[in-house]
Design a protein around this nucleic acid. Structure first.
Lengths: 221, 221
DNA sequence: TTGCATTTCAAACGCCTGTATGAAATCATC
DNA sequence: GATGATTTCATACAGGCGTTTGAAATGCAA
C-alpha cells in the first residue's frame, strides 16, 4: 500500500474547501483540483462522494469528542471527581473554539469543517449525527454533578446556550468584527473561551430566576 | 394584471420548502410542484431562481426589521425615550422566536426561512446581507442608552450572544428536545423569549467581570 | 366577436454534477 | 527484469439542474 498520499490529499483538500465554502458550493472536481489528483481517485478510494464526507465527519467527530472528554476528565480528576461548572463548560466549548481561533499552529480546518457540518447538515451527515446526543449527555451529567441543586431542565438549557454562543461566534465572527468596527478581539482565543464560559455559567442560573419573579419590564403583547 | 396568484403561489411554496429543507435540497421543480404551477412560470415572473430568492429575502428582511423596530420604539416611548435593557433585547429576538414557536396563527414559514438564509448564506443573499449591520447598530445604540456605563465592546458581545441563543434555539430545537427528553418546553414562546432575554442580560455583564478577577477554576492546560 | 397583450404550458436546450470504464502507469515480489 | 496486483488517468455516461423557446390559452378592450 504505497500511497495513501492520494487518500489523505483528498481528505485534506475536501476538508479545507468544505470548511471555507460550505458543502453546496464544492464539487468533486474542485476537490481533486485542490488535491492535485485525478477525478476518478475519489470514487476509487472512497466509493462515493457521500462516503468521503462521511469518513471526514466521523473521523473529526471522534477526534473532537475525545478532545472534549480528555479536558473534562482532567478537570474532574483535578477536583477529585467533581469539576467546577466553568471547567465543565470550558471542556465543552474550548476545543472547537481553539481550532477556529487558536494560534497558527493549533488552528485547523477541522474545527471549521465541523461547524459547517453541524449547520448545513448534508444528507450523509444527518444520518450519523444522533450519536452526538450520547456525547452531550456526558457533559450534562458532569454539569449536574457540578451543580446538584440545579433543576435538570436548566442544565440542558445551559448546555444548549453554551454551544449556541460558541458556534455562533465561529460562524458569524465576520459580522461581529464589522458590527463592532474591530473592537471585539477575536485573536485572543482564551479570552473568547472565558467570555463564552462566563456567559454560559450566568445563563445557567438565569432560568431559575424566571420562576421567582415576573420580569420587570412589560412583556410585549 | 389578473393573476399574481401564480407569483404569490411561487413565493409561498419557495418559502415553505426553503424553510423546511434548506436551499441546497430544493430545486425549481420542487417549488413549482408545490405551488401547482408550470416550471417556466418562475423565470417568467422573477427572471431567475436567484432573483426569486432575492425577492423573498428582501421582503422578509424588511418585514422582520420593521417588527423589531416597532417593538423597540414602543418600549422606548413607554420609558420616555429610554427602554430598559431587557425590553431592547426582547424587541430584537422576540419577533423571530414568535414566528418560529408562536401559536398556530402567528407561526410562519417566514421566520424559519430567515434563519435558513442567515445560516446557509446562498450566493444571492450574501450580497445583500450587509444592510443588516445598519439595522443591528440601532439596537446596539438602544442598548447603550439603556446601559450607558457599559463599555461599548460589551454591548456588541451581548448583542451577538443574544442573537446566538435565539437563532440556535430555532435551528437546533429538535436536538434540545431529544437531549432533554422533552423536558425543555418549546411550546411556550414567551417563556423561551424570557429565557433568552434573561440569559443575554446576564451575559452583558459577564464580560466586564472578566477583567476584574481571574476565573476561579484553573484555565485548562 | 375581433384583436392584442398577458400569461401558461410542454418540450427542449446546454451545462454541470457524481459515477463508471478500460487502458496506461506504477509498484512490489520473485 | 518479468509478473501480477495496485493505483492513476483521460474520457465518457446518464441524470438533474436552471433556463429558453414558441405555441397555446387566457384576459381584456373595442
Amino acid at each position: 500500500m504505497a500511497s495513501d498520499q492520494t487518500r489523505t490529499a483528498i481528505l485534506r483538500a475536501a476538508e479545507r474547501l468544505y470548511a471555507d465554502r460550505g458543502f453546496a458550493d464544492v464539487t468533486l472536481r474542485d476537490i481533486v483540483a485542490e488535491a492535485g489528483v485525478n477525478l476518478a481517485a475519489v470514487n476509487y478510494h472512497f466509493g462515493s462522494k457521500d462516503e468521503l464526507i462521511t469518513e471526514l465527519f466521523v473521523t473529526r467527530s471522534i477526534a473532537t469528542n475525545r478532545e472534549r472528554l480528555t479536558e473534562l476528565k482532567a478537570a474532574e480528576a483535578a477536583g477529585g471527581g467533581r469539576a467546577p461548572i466553568d471547567a465543565v463548560l470550558r471542556a465543552l466549548v474550548a476545543p472547537t473554539l481553539r481550532g477556529c481561533f487558536g494560534p497558527e499552529g493549533e488552528r485547523s480546518d477541522a474545527a471549521r469543517f465541523m461547524i459547517r457540518a453541524s449547520v448545513e447538515a448534508v444528507a450523509p451527515i444527518r444520518k450519523i449525527k444522533n450519536r452526538e446526543l450520547d456525547h452531550l449527555r456526558k457533559f450534562a451529567a458532569a454539569m449536574q454533578r457540578a451543580m446538584p441543586e440545579l433543576p435538570e431542565v436548566e442544565i440542558y438549557w445551559g448546555l444548549h446556550f453554551a454551544l449556541a454562543m460558541a458556534h455562533h461566534t465561529i460562524r458569524d465572527s465576520e459580522r461581529l468584527q464589522k458590527l463592532s468596527d474591530g473592537q471585539c478581539d477575536l485573536d485572543d482565543v482564551e479570552a473568547i473561551v472565558d467570555r463564552v464560559v462566563n456567559a454560559a455559567v450566568l445563563a445557567l442560573q438565569s432560568g431559575t430566576k424566571l420562576g421567582e419573579a415576573k420580569p420587570k419590564s412589560q412583556r410585549a403583547n
